[in-house]
Nucleic acid binder design. Structure first.
Lengths: 358, 358
DNA sequence: CTGTTAGCGCGTTCAC
DNA sequence: GTGAACGCGCTAACAG
């Protein structure tokens, strides 16, 4: 009441009180009030109490984050760029685990995650949203243009499973070697006629047979590396690209591959969800797994719906990958220069693979 | 080069050029440069070209979002508060669909989603992060304190499936009526001994039998409403609370409920994932579904792993719920007063429910 | 311990 | 069409 009367007969109800108003009511200077809120400087107890009382009276909720962020040069926000539609990204448990690890690490440091896509209309956010650092996930060909923008904006970039680029901090996974390891496992079991179901190769998510041209042009580093790993063991490998890491897509791809003559005796799926779909396709066709068909997965997430089968798969440390990205972001913001990180997959033996039977 | 020589012999390489620097190089005033970037005002073509050339030369990426946001009073960020750990929230397809709809609508309006949790260390974001509006999802008891903070900060609040509160825009779902509808379906089939598996009742996510005390104290509006709906038809309903909407939890709950004597002939699960778990539990125990046990789900998401069974379930418009929340946020930001929205579930008949058999 | 001063980088009045 | 001045709300320096 006093404030209204003395300070502003023009605007009777200040909708959003600011620090200055609180300071004025408390009878202290703005900087003192600021210190009282941030707790950063030495403020006497009575003063601090006065400030809080004034804030209460004015219904002041604390310093405006926008102004803080301008002044401090930090927003407390870490961008997370997904190239897929969110729906797709969220459907794969491996991705979710990664985000979970990331969120965990960032949350602990008082940072929040801003979800962005680098395609579609939401892509504007990449150049407009306030961010202190950014984590690129499941990166596509758009990567380079995005990275250029971030570099211009002076925003540190962390990329998970991407081609190495200058000024981009890499979180790597041994996609190629791991897949080769899995392929060798199949080779040891005697398999010679092997096919692959890949993750989407282009941002168009087009299904269809793998060709050297498509692979070379692919924007998906992960998919490409995993194909290369399989080729390290089976140079003449054939396969199809899926439209996404879903069970349904594995089913579609599996039907296509199992219709070939001669039928492959083993299928390398680039994710566990795809592997499950392939197993479903086999079931549909009356093909026994692992007796007549071996199926290898990737990710090591627990997937429902293949019991009593246990997927033989390449287990990747998804959660740790996310945590590492979070820690890297925090370190880069502190001006540190963390060492690049590379994770390694482990082949977990289940019973979806077995000796070739013929 | 020229700039360095003339403007700053002290700092040879200005790390982050600002609008003023660009304007200076272009030989125009800062306000003109600003207009050139925003495209909002009349700027002659030559001038505009000069400005962009200068920006290019200085490697200027455009106006600083932080400063824009302070000046404009908008950050372009919509907060999304999840009370669970992200991992839990992401594991339920119904939730993901909702987020997808939300992201879609917001992305189209150039807004980005900031993910926040209202528990744990990340909760600081609630009072610190810059946001223009906020969507509360799967809200817990913490709701009220959060809402108070947002109100103080002058941030519009949208709450999905929450108790109505002043100044909170509701997106409702007929959880109670829908569950009652499903329960009546069971009643018509002759079931009298019915049990329920609920979503977590408290933020502790404690498993255990439902009691009137627990229900009354529950922070989960959705779980409570669905229980009430079941009670509308079966007043003496018993049940257990799960620790989350996962198949595994349904399995645990199913085992517990199916060990009772007399064994229930029907189980109402508060999500499809829980329902699948219950069906698994039945399978373990050699109980046939639907012959010896009817199982009712909720959500209508496509769940893997019960084929050839088709879940009888209450289908909710998850994606639309998210879209509605997004549209409401946008409308509220525009100063509009959109009408509250309420969605209705539909009972989809599958073959996981059938006539009581005894 | 507290107050004063000076911006952070930008967008928006107004004049011209 | 363009420029000059001011202020968004806050905080880092210093001064007292």
């Amino acid at each position: 009441m006093r404030v209204e009367a003395s300070a502003a007969s023009e605007r009777p109800v200040p909708a959003r009180p600011n620090l200055a108003a609180v300071a004025a009511l408390a009878g202290v200077s703005a900087s003192t009030a600021s210190l009282a809120f941030s707790g950063a400087g030495p403020v006497s107890e009575p003063t601090r109490a006065k400030v809080f009382a004034a804030a209460e009276a004015l219904n002041y909720a604390g310093p405006d984050p926008r102004a803080q962020s301008l002044r401090r040069g930090r927003s407390g926000i870490i961008g997370v760029v997904i190239d897929d539609r969110l729906r797709d990204a969220f459907r794969d448990p491996a991705n979710i685990s990664m985000l979970d690890g990331l969120a965990d690490e960032l949350g602990g440091a008082g940072l929040a995650m801003l979800l962005l896509t680098d395609t579609g209309e939401g892509a504007a956010g990449i150049s407009l949203a306030p961010m202190d650092a950014v984590v690129l996930v499941g990166c596509s060909t758009e990567l380079h243009s995005s990275v250029k923008i971030f570099r211009q904006r002076g925003i540190p970039v962390i990329a998970i499973e991407a081609e190495h680029m200058p000024d981009v901090f890499p979180i790597d996974l041994d996609n190629r070697d791991a897949t080769a390891l899995g392929a060798r496992h199949l080779k040891q079991l005697g398999h010679e006629n092997v096919a692959v179901v890949s993750l989407p190769l282009e941002s168009s998510h087009a299904r269809g047979p793998l060709t050297r041209e498509r692979e070379a042009a692919s924007g998906s580093f992960t998919a490409r590396q995993r194909i290369l790993g399989a080729r390290d063991v089976y140079p003449n490998l054939v396969g199809v690209a899926s439209a996404g890491s879903f069970i349904e897509e594995g089913l579609i791809a599996g039907r296509a591959l199992l219709a070939a003559t001669p039928r492959p005796t083993a299928i390398i799926a680039q994710s566990d969800l795809l592997a499950v779909g392939v197993i479903r396709a086999a079931a549909e066709l009356g093909i026994a797994v692992p007796a007549d068909l071996s199926v290898l997965g990737f990710d090591g997430v627990s997937v429902e719906g293949v019991a009593p089968l246990e997927l033989t798969t390449l287990v990747q440390p998804s959660v740790e990958k996310g945590r590492a990205a979070g820690r890297a972001a925090i370190a880069l913001l502190d001006g540190g220069e963390p060492d690049p990180i590379a994770f390694v997959c482990v082949l977990r033996m289940g019973n979806s693979t077995g000796p070739v039977n013929s």
